[in-house]
Simulated assay, not measured.
Amino acid sequence: MSEQICVYRNNEGFVSVQSLRNTSHNEPYIQGWCKKFKAPRTLRIERIINTFDILQDANDYLNNFDPDEIVSPSQRKALSASTFDVHFTGFKKADKTQLTEIAKANGMTVRGEVTKNLNLLCYGYNAGQKKLEKALDQGCIILNEPQFIALIETGEIPEE
């Protein structure tokens, strides 16, 4: 079982150690299962400060962490120009239309189904299990509506 261990700064500036299992990568995100919170976690790759092979090394690094060593977001490499594909499922028609407009206004490409290049699947109350499983099998990021809205507003998926 692969594990991604890193020191990470969230959108509020809080720095913590993150340990994710069964990770999938979808530029600009990495998603995996967090044993500590018993839930999936999604991190922005650009906010990863350092990666480690051993959890204790990450904790030691955090204990001796100097925030001035961090490169500012404006100095970071710009995100890839490739499309960021999203699909909405399990929503009432009006809600799906509104989410589609929000996604397009934020530069995302909205897909009508789960495709091989899909980056993100946003699900509602009536989402089908098979569609969710297909997206998971392809390594898509899976979010509910509040997480999607938080992603749009902050660029980060909330940890709650």
Rank of each mutant, 00 (worst) to 15 (best):
residue 132 L to C: 08
residue 60 D to A: 09
residue 121 L to T: 00
residue 125 Y to W: 08
residue 76 R to P: 05
residue 41 R to C: 08
residue 132 L to K: 10
residue 127 A to F: 03
residue 59 N to S: 07
residue 53 D to T: 14
residue 51 T to C: 13
residue 78 A to V: 04
residue 104 K to N: 02
residue 16 S to A: 14
residue 43 L to E: 03
residue 73 P to N: 10
residue 91 F to I: 07
residue 40 P to Q: 11
residue 130 K to Q: 14
residue 94 A to R: 13
residue 106 N to K: 05
residue 157 I to T: 03
residue 69 E to Q: 13
residue 29 Y to R: 03
residue 134 K to Y: 07
residue 8 Y to R: 02
residue 75 Q to D: 13
residue 151 L to W: 02
residue 42 T to P: 06
residue 92 K to Q: 14
residue 80 S to G: 05
residue 51 T to F: 06
residue 52 F to V: 11
residue 111 R to F: 00
residue 53 D to I: 08
residue 31 Q to E: 13
residue 108 M to H: 07
residue 147 Q to A: 13
residue 47 R to D: 14
residue 142 I to M: 07
residue 40 P to M: 12
residue 120 L to C: 15
residue 134 K to F: 07
residue 25 H to P: 00
residue 6 C to K: 00
residue 137 D to M: 09
residue 49 I to P: 02
residue 84 F to T: 04
residue 104 K to A: 05
residue 87 H to R: 05
residue 137 D to K: 11
residue 77 K to G: 02
residue 18 Q to W: 05
residue 97 T to S: 13
residue 101 E to T: 09
residue 17 V to L: 10
residue 5 I to K: 05
residue 144 N to L: 08
residue 127 A to Y: 01
residue 53 D to S: 08
residue 147 Q to S: 08
residue 157 I to A: 03
residue 48 I to G: 05
residue 25 H to S: 12
residue 100 T to E: 05
residue 57 D to I: 00
residue 130 K to I: 11
residue 4 Q to F: 15
residue 150 A to L: 07
residue 43 L to R: 08
residue 139 G to W: 09
residue 10 N to D: 15
residue 16 S to G: 12
residue 160 E to D: 14
residue 122 C to Q: 02
residue 10 N to A: 02
residue 98 Q to R: 15
residue 143 L to H: 00
residue 46 E to G: 09
residue 123 Y to P: 00
residue 52 F to T: 12
residue 82 S to C: 00
residue 128 G to S: 14
residue 98 Q to A: 14
residue 54 I to P: 00
residue 160 E to Y: 12
residue 129 Q to G: 06
residue 77 K to V: 08
residue 47 R to Y: 04
residue 112 G to D: 13
residue 74 S to K: 14
residue 148 F to K: 00
residue 106 N to E: 03
residue 119 N to R: 10
residue 110 V to G: 01
residue 144 N to I: 12
residue 9 R to Y: 01
residue 63 N to R: 15
residue 43 L to T: 06
residue 46 E to S: 14
residue 27 E to Q: 09
residue 8 Y to V: 05
residue 139 G to N: 10
residue 20 L to M: 13
residue 109 T to H: 03
residue 58 A to T: 04
residue 131 K to Y: 04
residue 19 S to E: 15
residue 69 E to Y: 01
